[in-house]
């Protein structure tokens, strides 16, 4: 299946090395099972009923019917998905744009007081959302944005800008200064430099940032729980908790809903992993 990169095979392949390689492989496979099995189990539970889930939670479903999946979709999951999509996409665009502007301003313009602004932006990394919860609720109520999609879009943007800026800035800072010089000689304004030269060059890290933001926004719980209510503004994580409330819960439907909520994100991640890793590789750890 997998070959370890053992250089110059031949005389140096010893018995211990083969054993070592086998051990490593079985370790990877076992860990893979530990990771994958629970997820498979979640999807399979969507085919059971309450009795089977609680009675024999780890057996295979007796019969395969999509009824639970269909019901889950019709009992609210559709609207949760739409809200989650809306919030995730809008806040993702805001976050990445604002962060890219900021990174540009911090690395490629002659902005006065740069260290101070850098500290201000990255200081946000150290502040935890729980600490700001109550003041934020009062503020959003005053703004008339409480219980609206806007509340989540603004909060997700505000709390993700520091990290996203950190990543984009680290990437931008390494782009050669000659780029700016050439553009300026050609008579480009700052805006043109940003949109036509720098931003396109940052594509790998922008893609990574978008993926990281999607992972965050799709699964965020505290803000979504506190700042929204009512079916129109419920996102998936809160919606899943709603499905699981106190009395008479159909757990099979809950598991089906969970699978529906997890599937897109897993697919997106597998599909974009190559770009994701590349962007991070070039941007992180600077």
């Amino acid at each position: 299946m997998t070959t370890l990169a053992v250089p110059h095979t031949g005389p140096r392949v010893s018995a211990t090395r083969i054993i070592g390689r086998t051990l490593l492989l079985s370790f990877l496979v076992c860990l893979g099972i530990v990771v994958a099995y629970p997820l498979l189990w979640m999807a399979l539970n969507g085919f059971k009923d309450n009795e089977q889930i609680f009675g024999t939670p780890f057996s295979l479903p007796r019969h395969f019917s999509w009824a639970n999946y269909v019901n889950a979709w019709n009992h609210g999951v559709r609207s949760y998905v739409i809200t989650s999509l809306l919030v995730t996409i809008s806040s993702g665009i805001c976050t990445v744009l604002i962060s890219a502007w900021t990174a540009f301003g911090l690395t490629r313009t002659h902005l006065p007081g740069r260290p101070f602004i850098l500290a201000l932006v990255l200081g946000g990394l150290m502040l935890s959302p729980t600490v700001a919860l109550i003041p934020l609720v009062q503020m959003f109520q005053g703004l008339g944005l409480y219980n609206s999609d806007w509340a989540l879009i603004i909060l997700y943007t505000a709390f993700r800008v520091p990290f996203t800026t950190f990543l984009i800035r680290a990437y931008m800072i390494d782009l050669p200064a000659e780029l700016d010089e050439a553009a300026t000689i050609d008579g480009a304004t700052d805006s043109q430099r940003f949109w036509r030269v720098i931003l396109p060059m940052c594509r790998p890290i922008i893609i990574s940032c978008i993926i990281l933001h999607v992972l965050f926004a799709w699964n965020e719980y505290i803000f979504a729980m506190v700042f929204t209510s009512g079916s129109d503004t419920t996102t998936l994580p809160v919606g899943l908790a709603l499905l699981m409330a106190r009395h008479s819960t159909n757990y099979a439907e809950v598991f089906a809903a969970m699978t529906i909520s997890a599937l897109p994100i897993v697919v997106v991640f597998f599909a974009t992993q190559r770009y994701f890793v590349r962007g991070l590789a070039e941007g992180i750890g600077k």
Partner: peptide
Amino acid sequence: WVAAAVIVLVWFVY
């Protein structure tokens, strides 16, 4: 360039 981030952070985080 940095105005948006500064405003959003000061207002909603700091």
